[in-house]
């Protein structure tokens, strides 16, 4: 589902200043077209993740930077593995 900035704020429960900071840090990178930001479900899930890391696990802003960077690499690797598996014919489609 595509969301406007306002819909994203409502759905994620984030304060607008918090969102601005996260955007500045590139923790969230929504699509942008014609000067409007468009958020997806994955951005909501990522916002919940960041909140959980801060509130539940006690990670600070520096820590979030590191965690997200490594996590994005893990998912990039997993994606490459999935494609490789498909390529060698062992995948499910």
């Amino acid at each position: 589902m595509r969301m406007t900035k306002q819909e994203f704020l409502t759905s994620s429960g984030l304060q607008v200043q918090v969102l601005e900071f996260w955007l500045e840090q590139h923790w969230l990178i929504p699509e942008e077209s014609a000067g409007e930001l468009h958020f997806q479900d994955i951005d909501i899930a990522r916002a919940h993740l960041i909140r959980g890391l801060k509130d539940d696990l006690g990670a600070n802003d520096e820590g979030i930077d590191v965690i997200l960077h490594l996590m994005d690499q893990v998912h990039g690797l997993r994606r490459a593995l999935v494609e490789l598996r498909q390529q060698i014919g062992g995948g499910r489609g």
């Binding site: 699509e31 994955i42 899930a45 990522r46 994005d72 893990v74 998912h75 997993r78 994606r79």
Partner: peptide
């Protein structure tokens, strides 16, 4: 969880290839 979206077939715009 975020991982459910991050590994979906919809594509994950955050996935990063720098690890390999």
């Amino acid at each position: 969880y975020y991982r459910d979206f991050a590994s979906s077939d919809q594509g994950n715009p955050y996935a990063d290839a720098s690890g390999f």
